[in-house]
């Protein structure tokens, strides 16, 4: 699950069952996805159980849409 709240800069708080092997990659995917959406300041909480990158991207995008009220798929 990914939740996004206000923050300064991009802060990613990750809890993952695959932290040792994939924590670095997951953080990078979260950051890149937000940057791609133009989000520069946010506090992200992500609880991961070993999801694939495509799923993480979708979750982060959905959380960003909810947090900002700006529908990236429509607008």
């Amino acid at each position: 699950m990914v939740t996004i709240g206000p923050g300064e800069g991009l802060q990613v708080e990750l809890q993952s069952s695959v932290e040792a092997q994939f924590g670095r990659q997951i953080r990078a995917v979260i950051t890149e996805t937000l940057e791609g959406l133009g989000v520069t300041d946010a506090h992200v909480q992500a609880i991961d159980k070993g999801a694939l990158d495509c799923t993480i991207r979708a979750r982060v995008t959905a959380a960003a849409v909810r947090a900002t009220g700006k529908d990236v798929w429509k607008d």
Binding site: V18, A20, Q21, F22, G23, R24, Q25, L52, D53
Partner: peptide, 9 residues
Amino acid sequence: IIGTPDPLP
């Protein structure tokens, strides 16, 4: 699909 895993500690 998953990328190269980092080595285990």
